[in-house]
Design a protein around this nucleic acid. Structure first.
Lengths: 81, 81
DNA sequence: TCGAGTGATACGCTATAGCGTAAAAAGTGA
DNA sequence: TCACTTTTTACGCTATAGCGTATCACTCGA
């Protein structure tokens, strides 16, 4: 399960997959974030117009955080030690 | 240089640090993204209202991508092999 | 000393996010 | 098939992002 994302579509897909993994519904996320189900839906469907605050709220609800890495950066040996 | 972020402030800081590392100005990013310097400034200063599209454009200009990871997930041994 | 580069901030404008509310559409299990 | 859950979409509304343009503070080298 690779959760690398460069686009809103990829972020949305990653969030949806993580949510499913947790066995949660959009309604569950809605309850934890005070965002509407419609907003969660929009985000998961890759709306790039979504506010950063919204993305971060859903991330927090899912227990996720961002890591900013070099593009195409498949685990370099220098990154380990 | 840890680029982990849970908040808009942390994302802004990570983007600014990366930009400085590249030796670029906000104007350089502006030219590469067609976003105004004011918008870049706002993002780097942690405005959570920033649109996802804006964040992604700056990320792309910096050659960065997101990785969505478990919170507090400090490099686990299973992640390496 | 001072002009150039950098970054922060402001004003008026248009486009749109997210809201409440609602309903339709799609998925799921008996 | 049918009822229930989940997700998507719509409408009217308010708040605000990002735009063009411009100004202002700060830093720094000539």
């Amino acid at each position: 399960m690779d959760l690398t994302a460069r686009t809103a579509e990829q972020i949305g897909e990653a969030l949806r997959r993580t949510r499913k993994t947790r066995g949660w519904t959009q309604s569950d996320i809605s309850a934890r974030t005070n965002l509407r189900v419609a907003t969660i839906s929009s985000l998961e469907n890759g709306d790039a117009g979504t506010k950063l605050a919204t993305v971060l709220a859903v991330m927090a609800a899912l227990g996720l955080e961002f890591r900013l890495v070099e593009r195409g950066g498949s685990l370099e040996i220098e990154d380990i030690f």
